[in-house]
Amino acid sequence: MSFLQIQNLEKSFGATRILKGVTLEIEEGGFLVLVGPSGCGKSTLLNTIAGLEPITSGEIRIGGRRVNDLHPSKRDIAMVFQSYALYPNMTVAQNIAFGMEIRGVPKPERDKAIADVASLLQIGHLLDRKPSQLSGGQRQRVAMGRALVRDPQVFLFDEPLSNLDAKLRIDMRTEIKRLHQRMGTTIVYVTHDQIEAMTLATKIAVLKDGILQQFGTPAEIYNNPVNMFVADFMGSPAMNLVPATIGGNGSGLTVNFEREGRPPVSLAVTDPPSGLAGFKGKKVVFGVRPEALTDPDGADRNASSTATADLHIEVVEPAGSDTFAVTNLGGKGVVARLRADANVQPGTVTPLTFNLTKTVFFDPATENRIH
């Protein structure tokens, strides 16, 4: 059953609509990640759930209870901010205990809660220090500890890792995932980092310009993007979006790519989406993830449909566990993900295999997926 429900949510500042009819829900114990570019409305959506921003219209329910008009203190939520928002004059222990002290929680109970979260977050040795004596990662753990002692119905995280360096972000990401697995609390988490979204979420909501573009599991978002924006935004490296033309091959269809100064490449499309027949003789955008374009020896043996073409390699980028090769199709650079030891050289023509079961097609006019 859905635990957090957001129904047709609208938020305007004056005449400017920030959130435009957002509808989504998450089950109890779920991990919902709101993702999208800067200015897409994800932090505003989080603030409306928290009660820090009033909504213009729509409905928010937590545990079946309508909270639209409830004060933030009555919503049973806890928030972890990007800036940590710790009191600089208080010790770690005092920061963690402050909210409990305000609510009149007895001192023995406060001390036990502090000890429990300190053990959970491995910050017991920091309890007597001030925030100025802590690293960024330690401050973030303290901010999380202050939220955890609340034992709320919902945790809200607003880009909590964006101030940390790359390695520490990965470490903290793992800690947050481990914490969620242990506690099973419902979490709503805002980030612009789609890798963070993919690794943490049970459900992802992709926002653009205040409009919910797609809502689903990480696998659904990654493998079945509903439009070109989601396809391009989710994934690193991003999905290759290649201009192409749909042709005929007897009773079947082909996807054809122009190449500057070289013969076109034509691939037979087996099991095409039913709507693709209507694009025969027309332009489409062909979407293929880098891992679905690789050297023949590294191709997925379980793929039901593959096609190999000889392609001119322009750039080779060794990346440790993988090698990335860039070719050109339809006037665009296309990235292939090869095995680390793949024997490929720039300036040469090399066979590359497309996993056609992992490819998608988009209408260039609407940018929506062709089904």
Score class of each variant (00 low, 15 high):
G14Q: 09
R129D: 15
V334Q: 05
L121A: 11
L253N: 05
R129E: 13
N256F: 02
F81I: 08
R339D: 10
E53L: 04
V154M: 00
I55Q: 02
V142K: 01
A115P: 07
A85S: 15
A115S: 15
F3R: 01
F155I: 01
T56A: 08
R301Y: 10
A78R: 00
L253K: 00
L276W: 10
V344F: 09
S251F: 06
N223C: 09
N68H: 15
K20S: 11
Q122D: 14
K280Q: 14
F229L: 09
R17W: 01
I221L: 13
L86E: 02
K280W: 05
F155L: 01
Q213L: 08
D165I: 03
A292Q: 04
P225D: 03
G248K: 15
R129S: 13
H371F: 13
G29R: 00
G99C: 13
K358L: 14
A277I: 08
M198I: 11
G36R: 00
K20T: 06
A309L: 02
M90K: 08
P106I: 10
D232M: 08
D271R: 13
I170G: 03
R139A: 05
G39H: 06
P364F: 07
K20D: 14
T327R: 01
I96G: 01
S2T: 12
G64A: 15
P264A: 06
A325D: 05
T348P: 05
V190E: 00
D341C: 06
S83T: 14
R65S: 14
Q7H: 12
K42I: 03
S135T: 12
P290V: 06
R369V: 09
M198A: 08
S305P: 01
G298M: 04
S132N: 15
G104Y: 11
I55H: 02
S305N: 08
D69M: 12
F229G: 08
D341F: 10
V190A: 03
F279N: 05
I96Y: 00
R173P: 02
E196K: 01
T23I: 00
K167N: 14
D310N: 13
L168W: 10
H312Q: 10
H312F: 12
E220T: 08
G252P: 00
D151V: 12
R61W: 04
V326H: 12
F157A: 10
T294F: 04
T323Q: 05
S38M: 12
L127S: 09
G58C: 12
D363V: 08
A113T: 06
D363F: 07
A15D: 15
V242S: 03
L212E: 02
V255D: 02
Y84L: 02
D300C: 09
G333W: 09
R369A: 15
F155M: 00
Q345T: 12
S57G: 10
I211V: 14
S38P: 11
K107W: 07
N68S: 15
E220G: 09
A147T: 04
S236G: 10
G21P: 00
R61T: 10
L338N: 07
E53G: 05
S2R: 03
K177A: 14
P72E: 14
I77V: 15
S38G: 13
I49Y: 02
T353M: 13
A143D: 06
L207Q: 00
F157D: 03
I62P: 03
K208A: 12
K203A: 13
K203T: 14
L134Y: 06
G63D: 05
M234K: 01
